[in-house]
Design a protein around this nucleic acid. Sequence first.
DNA 1: AATTAAACGTGATATCTGTCACAAAACGTT
DNA 2: AACGTTTTGTGACAGATATCACGTTTAATT
Lengths: 233, 233
Amino acid sequence: MVIQKYKEELSYELGELLKSAERIVPIKKGSYLFKEGQEAREMYIILSGKVQISKMNAEGNELSLRLCKHNDIVGELTLFTVDPRYIFNAKIIENGEVAAINITDLEHAFFKNSQLAFEFLRWMNDHIRKTITKFRDLVLNGKKGALYSTIIRLCNSYGVVRENGIEISVPLTNQDLANFCGTARESVSRMLTELRKNHIISISKKIITVHDLDYLKKEIDCENCPIEYCNID
Amino acid sequence: MVIQKYKEELSYELGELLKSAERIVPIKKGSYLFKEGQEAREMYIILSGKVQISKMNAEGNELSLRLCKHNDIVGELTLFTVDPRYIFNAKIIENGEVAAINITDLEHAFFKNSQLAFEFLRWMNDHIRKTITKFRDLVLNGKKGALYSTIIRLCNSYGVVRENGIEISVPLTNQDLANFCGTARESVSRMLTELRKNHIISISKKIITVHDLDYLKKEIDCENCPIEYCNID
DNA sequence: AATTAAACGTGATATCTGTCACAAAACGTT
DNA sequence: AACGTTTTGTGACAGATATCACGTTTAATT
């Protein structure tokens, strides 16, 4: 089975999940893995590449929720619903492969295999904690709080330590960041300019390097919650 | 067993969960079922009364997340964590009783009983969808969107149909509403005044009656998502 | 290298929202 | 009914944020 070659690198829980995988699908930058409103038959585990999860509102504003990578699960919220439909858009921003898992099969598997259900339950629990803390930052600390929180989470998910700070290894435009914060591009641009002026960050070719993460954390009263809850995936 | 007397009125899933309940605890208005930071040993199912779930930030602002009633589960996010601690406050706003479920026992029960794990998984899934759509309303449509969304959800959870509209059967102060919206009391007061002026709502003794729910829905581009996702509990 | 397209920075301005202050109204208690 | 407490309404103002406009810079394409 083609899936076998991936299994070794995965955590035990995901390995279990992957056993139910039907097939491996290549994903291509710029296209969509799924779009909101589409009928949902599969949930996905990302094997490689990057996928951004977002939701549009009626005015066409986009709110980005997650930026997912290797071993992240997407399309999971379609489980256990009648007439399942995706409620988000999953835009591929870096080429790679995903494992597709039929959701009907998975539901049956959960029912039969409590080990599997248990592991997934744990994953869901982490996921909801993550979601709530993220949104709290967005709602309670204004737009600056939203941006700083987003940058901190990006560091935790995609940060690479360099001699001069933490480099966020995903190219992001100001508009991308604005979508994560529910704010205007121009506001992001101004805030980033200020952060650069104060040597908190620097940006080169859409790659942000954070020189003073503690400054960002202090500004939003970060409680230094564990990294499993403070990320963007 | 004391729990038996409640079992009949509960849905199947909750009945299954309740089998693991250790004891029934009376809850008293004004006190807290648990507070954030406290060591967590139990999860609760509300049998009667009302419990408000909230989170404080460093400046002492309170963000209310849920308003829970009969058959709602609270304290669930402590499951599957090492050194489990409550991350929210659960303030009792109406007397009643809760069933306390030891979380270690419950984790074991999930592991052994896939039916139970399955039902809980379904519950978690609904819960996370709810949370995300709520926060999206808060973030994307400004403070007016936050308030309107909160009122709509309150109608769905606590609305009683009267000849002149939908009565939200929970007394709420402006400050309570402000806490749900992450906004200032004065802003809520002004927005409510305007809604009253336009005969969208009326308020008597802290009880809101909504005369024109469609107006509120239109203003925030409500997609009329199913009531299981659009509520406050 | 030249050309086009995308992304960015920034001033000006309008709107939204929070804060402070204080009086009026509603509520609860004795 | 009288009193103290909580809640509400509202003006004035300040700060945050969005929007519009437009020139500059950077990246992509031919």
